[in-house]
Design a binder for these strands. Sequence first.
RNA 1: GGGGCAGUAGGGUAGCCUGGUCCAUCCUAGAGCGUUUGGGACGCUUUGACGGCAGUUCGAAUCUGCCCUGCCCCA
Length: 477
Amino acid sequence: MEEDTGALPRKESFSEWYNEILWRAEIMDVRYPVKGLYVWYPHGFGIRKRAYGILRDLMDRDHAETMFPLLIPKTEFMKEAEHIKGFEDEVYWVTHGGRNELDVPLALRPTSETAIYPMYALWIRSHTDLPLKLYQVVNTFRYETKHTRPLIRLREITSFKEAHTVHASWEEAAAQVEVALGLYKEFYDTLRVPVILSRRPDWDKFPGADYTIAVDTIMPDGKTLQIGTVHMLGDHFSRTYAITYEDANGEQQYGYQTCYGISERSIAAVVSVHGDDKGLVLPPAVAPIEIVVVPIIVGKRRDEVLASATALESELRDAGFAVKLDARDMRPGAKYYHWEMRGVPLRVEVGPRDVDANTVVAVTRTGKKTTLDRRGVVEGITSVLSTFGEDLSQAARQAMAARITAVATLEETAEAVKSGVAVVHWCGSQECAEKIEAAVDASIIGSDIRSDLIAVSDGPCVVCGGEGRSALVARTY
RNA sequence: GGGGCAGUAGGGUAGCCUGGUCCAUCCUAGAGCGUUUGGGACGCUUUGACGGCAGUUCGAAUCUGCCCUGCCCCA
């Protein structure tokens, strides 16, 4: 792993900035020799580990974790016609075992509905088995033909958290969709990433779903990134896979299902939303190192300062912080740059002056400097870190708000989507959506918008003038 | 899916058209030694590459073919 030095490209050149920060901050190494597959550096994986720990804790409230196989027999995979159509061009097939051709080819899961639901059919017998709510965190494979991008568009999604639920009625399933959206909202609140929820147009929903609610954020270049989806499957799959239960009256009924997922795009969002010209900026909740202690070692007082820094490190570790003492033989400035690139939320400096005054100097990743009393340092740091996290949320919200524009004409829409998201009135027809796309080089991505940054209203469709309601128009990743 | 450009050490470049001590050069890269240390220190020594596979040739970073990988534009 190379030492980072020199300036990062400015964040305004987002694409360049993104590519470079991934290796400079040691998140992903893109040099793996297969297109669309990338390697997690330990630091990047540490971020993933903490983020997915949060996600697992949220899921575990109301779901059980499980693990299904990677390979799906073609016979099961091909059962659900609409679903296949949505994925058939992207599936990797295993056709051989050693030198022998397989009787039934095996698909590398692009998503696991067709692996899980045949088993659900076996597991579910009675209404007392419902609701069933399971999830797994697995890798999935999609033969992407568009340009691949680390963490964003992958041929191997390494961190797909997918949940699959079964309920006794359509209404219960629909209620679960709302529960899932609540969990995802909470997840992204913890990551300090602001999101917009909206309902995808019918032609853009998950193959085989009744409807899809998406969770999007807005990237620094104004394009939206879908960082979560929740699908109402209705009884579509349960009819195909014969997921039935006996109700209280002894009648056989089909189950109603939902599924929802989050991938490492969540990490891409954290990196992109918070990062700045100096590197990564991590919310304390996902930082593998929350605090770095930098001893300012000068000549004769070296041992004294080092002892003080070491004692501070232990005290902070005992208090439950992820803390690292950087005692390397380098100039302090070089260390500051090193940890700033990697997004460490808080740096604590201990030098001879601090030893004398019985203080420490705490500097947040965004440059807020506080001198703390050495006694009661845990309380002081807890408070500094919590304020830092809240400040990140606020800054991210403001940045997002600045990229959202309510517009009334196609000309204004075209202008708005160059740097962000436009909110238009739209009648809901595919015909008008296509006209918008043709006119403004961006698409209708959702209606039924839910965001406290967007005021939803009725109004005349921006294309046909018919009755319309607020919808999002954006360029997307 | 269609078109274009590219791949040389950890990173950045030159050399290619016009094959031949050209295995070059730069860096805030790596290793070692010493002096340093409150915002990217300095000196000396040293390491390391022509994307892969075939072909042409006495000889290939350079020419030919295929493949892989990356970037940009269009759909």
